[in-house]
Amino acid sequence: MNLPIPFIVLLAVISLAGTGFYCLLFTRNLIKVVVALQLIVKGVVLAFVLAGHLQQNESLAQTMAITVIVADTIVAVIGLSLAVQIRQHTGSLDLKALSKLKR
């Protein structure tokens, strides 16, 4: 079994993004939503670095990857603190508990 390296990395990217999409659409737990976003962004960072590796333009791809990591961390921070606040207000982490407009 001698797969080319970019192909293997692409499989890792697709598996990370795929599990992330699956969890994002299936879960109703607010903290699990942040976990799913983290998984997707890890796939994106891997894809960025692979693209730079293939194009021989590593420095540009790596700076973009750093920006993506920072932005993703801020998203996680804000998302988690929102989840904590929502838990204190509604007493639940369930996404369905948020849809008060239906009732």
Partner: peptide, 19 residues
């Protein structure tokens, strides 16, 4: 951050049932 948030918000098991 996750451990911090889970400590504050508490464990709550919600199954994988999509909304």
């Amino acid at each position: 951050l996750f451990v911090f948030a889970i400590n504050i918000a508490g464990e709550e098991v919600i199954g994988l049932r999509s909304a």
